[in-house]
């Protein structure tokens, strides 16, 4: 069973959002990392890039294919997880610990469009 963490927000494209004040921490879920298999590359935006809710901001690549990363919220990138540049496999080890980008949120109300842990768990169940 894929791990789902209480208190995070989740998108239908399997990204999670952890809210810390006006900062949103974004990564892919455990379900997503399991479905992808070995992650071999993470394509990340640059600091100061704008991201938009629902729009692509990068990609996670397994051996076989590239999967788009979609931002759950809008805002400005304030940090990217540089550890993933040399060790993309960290995502397979712990997808929640190894976030991908931190974003300064431009619209706090956007979280209302995301799922909570219970809803996401049910969503994955259905997808499976």
């Amino acid at each position: 069973m894929a791990k789902v963490i209480e208190g995070l927000y989740y998108s239908e494209s399997h990204e999670y959002l952890k809210v810390e004040g006006n900062i949103g921490i974004i990564g892919i879920t455990d379900y997503a990392q399991k479905a992808l298999g070995n992650v071999v590359y993470v394509d990340m935006p640059d600091v100061d890039d704008e991201v938009e809710a629902g729009a692509e901001f990068g990609a996670v690549e397994s051996v076989k294919a590239a999967s788009d990363l979609n931002s759950p919220i809008s805002g400005t990138v304030v940090e990217v997880n540089e550890a993933l540049e040399d060790a993309p496999e960290l995502i397979n080890q712990d997808a929640y610990e190894n976030w991908i980008i931190k974003v300064e949120r431009s619209d706090p109300s956007e979280v209302e469009n995301l799922m909570d842990a219970a809803a996401y768990e049910a969503f994955c169940e259905k997808e499976h």
């Binding site: 071999v40 590359y41 394509d43 690549e61 294919a65 590239a66 540049e85």
Partner: peptide, 11 residues
């Protein structure tokens, strides 16, 4: 054949 300097993957 093409070899990239970076780790990004050409598909």
């Amino acid at each position: 054949g093409i070899e990239l300097a970076d780790k990004a993957i050409p598909r």
